[in-house]
Design a protein around this nucleic acid. Sequence first.
DNA 1: ACTCTGTCTCAAGACGAA
DNA 2: TTGAGACAGAGT
DNA 3: TTCGTCC
Length: 382
Amino acid sequence: MGIKGLTKLLADNAPKAMKEHKFESYFGRKIAIDASMSIYQFLIVVGRVGTDTLTNEAGEVTSHLQGMFTRTIRLLEAGIKPVYIFDGQPPELKKQELAKRFSKRADATEDLSEAREIGNKEDIEKFSKRTVKVTKQHNEDCKRLLRLMGVPVIEAPSEAEAQCAALCKSGQVYAVASEDMDSLTFGAPRFLRHLMDPSSRKVPVMEFEISKILEELNLIMDQFIDLCILSGCDYCESIRGIGGQTALKLIRQHGSIENILENINKERYQIPENWPYEQARELFKNPLVFSEKEHPEIKWGAPDEEGLITFLVNENGFNIDRVTKAIEKIKTAKNKSSQGRLESFFKPVANTSTPIKRKETSESAKETAIKKAKAAGGKKKK
DNA sequence: ACTCTGTCTCAAGACGAA
DNA sequence: TTGAGACAGAGT
DNA sequence: TTCGTCC
């Protein structure tokens, strides 16, 4: 779930800390990406018609491979150097949350068989999406694929998001790309949202810098973490009746959760029993991650052409022409970006963030989108 | 009236031929 | 899974 | 731009 409402909270209270950037401006940059999140999305959506997905001869799902393959090529073609981070063991505190998700999936499985009996297509599709789970096998498949592509893979000891943030803190990558706002709470200095979107949608890449967020909110990192816990995170409950806005007010007023608890009206606000906010804070502040020396060196290599053909074509039924063409793309992209990042390419574009709201009424949605795109494009340079 | 929270719903990739 | 948007209801 | 296909 990430941090509840954090995007909106930042848009309202720290708009200058968010900047729009062009996808192309990340040429030559090393970017850390949480793999599980992507795999999950691919399994849900790639090639799905009803309950069917893309599969190989043996009937095993290949949607995640198709998705990971094409997306990674897109990144490489843009000159981006991705490194994928895989999840390890979840922390104890998150187990409760995971248990909830597990039972939801179980419910969905029941709903699914019910829907099957009735034969409602839409329901079948809806419920089957909810039963999707990223398995060990999916993860292993993707690791193998990425290694064959010459793209580095890191297996985190615990939370992938935390490992991503650590890589960014130590300067091994330029930024963390994710849709999960947790990255900021883990202290990723530079965080990108919607990195993958701009191709098909009109959403620009949104870049957050934690230092600017802290500056603009006038908080120190510890207070920001407390703010996130109060707003609602994966590790523990929050206080009913307190959302982002109120949390920010309270943190500004009292400085820490401890002080808030001392001063708050406990008649009005129910503090959860045995509230483990201190442990949650510790998980954000000092998460279990590998240091630079503890994980393999991050290197981008040449693709293993034979290996890719064996894996994708022979084992998973991919079309050989497509794979061959794709390999060519990888090689071309590699040559182009091997000189690294030309700084002259990268003119600092001073663009301010635009608060994102604006309601679109039914039919004019398309038009509005076009107008927006034009307006944004025109404003950027002057 | 206004602000905030909580609950519900929805949609979700990438490509290229037409 | 994730966020966002629309809505209702509670509190100020 | 839209729509069907990828496996």
